[in-house]
């Protein structure tokens, strides 16, 4: 690895630059678009020089979208709020259910244990559309359709398997001796779970939670079918920008920027937990 010629170094630099441009370009372009009017965006050829405008953001925040055909009410902020509520509660519920379940699957061997764990994972294999029709019917009977509770419930199909399977791996990697040591020191199993098992797998739980949050946030199909306008998340709400008078690229770009901000912020915040290898130095060596 240290023995590189100049040529190899240059080649590596060029390749890295290519990859960066390929992946970063759409994001940068969207950021730029969000500060332009539709006319500026649709100009040919496109230009990097333009007078930035906050018009798109103002329209989104005030909820009034001015188009050539007239004024349109959009509920973007409500959608953003819905996304936040749905994702946060879904992940929170999935953690409350999934972490103890993951622990059980990791530590105890019980009848059908592997089968149950696999069934939970298999939820991720089924195409969502397959389950949506019966779900819609059941939800209407139960009065759950178009409620936050109903959506959070359905979102468990997304979050729970993720959390269960990721966190289970972390529990399995943790030496049971550490828990045994705390037990023999005189602490009950619940205290041991709270003070030892949870803190030691915190990086894993954080990673699983973050991933589940992103999946929940990006979900489209469940919310499209099961939620009406006032419970819709941003993914579904974005459809409103496709108007009769054309597509509002500027607003879409601004909406994208606004809607990736929470996930991005969360990811940056959680990063230090993800990287921190707390388990290092726990046992010998």
């Amino acid at each position: 690895m240290q023995h590189q010629s100049t040529f190899e170094r240059v080649l590596r630099g060029v390749l890295i630059a290519l990859v960066l441009v390929f992946f970063m370009f759409p994001i940068v372009w969207i950021l730029l678009m969000s500060f332009q009017t539709n006319e500026q965006i649709l100009r040919i050829p496109p230009s990097l020089l333009f007078e930035p405008t906050l018009e798109n953001y103002r329209a989104l925040i005030t909820g009034r979208l001015e188009t050539h055909a007239g004024t349109l009410d959009i509920r973007f902020m409500q959608n953003l709020w819905n996304s936040l509520i749905l994702s946060v509660f879904s992940v929170a519920l999935a953690l409350v259910l999934g972490v103890p379940a993951a622990y059980a699957f990791a530590r105890f061997r019980f009848r059908l244990g592997e089968d149950i764990a696999f069934t939970l994972l298999s939820f991720r294999f089924a195409p969502p559309l397959l389950v949506l029709l019966p779900l819609t019917l059941y939800f209407q009977d139960l009065g759950l359709s178009d409620t936050y509770v109903g959506l959070v419930w359905v979102y468990q199909l997304i979050c729970l398997p993720l959390i269960l399977w990721i966190v289970r791996g972390y529990f399995e990697d943790m030496s049971p001796d550490i828990e045994h040591a705390y037990r023999t020191a005189g602490h009950g199993w619940l205290t041991t779970f709270r003070r030892i098992s949870i803190p030691l797998t915190a990086p894993g739980i954080a990673a699983a939670g973050l991933l589940a949050f992103i999946f929940a946030w990006n979900n489209f199909i469940f919310a499209l079918v099961l939620a009406s306008a006032d419970k819709q998340p941003v993914t579904v709400g974005a459809l409103a920008f496709v108007t009769a008078s054309g597509i509002q690229y500027g607003q879409i770009a601004a909406a994208i920027v606004l809607s990736i901000t929470p996930t991005l912020a969360l990811a940056l915040y959680a990063q230090r937990y993800l990287v921190e290898g707390l388990s290092l130095g726990a046992v010998k060596g």
Binding site: Y182, T184, L200, L278, S279, A282, V283
Partner: peptide, 11 residues
């Protein structure tokens, strides 16, 4: 009890 792999609480 003292464990062979020490089993110290790393946190």
């Amino acid at each position: 009890m003292a464990f062979q792999n020490f089993a110290l609480f790393p946190h």
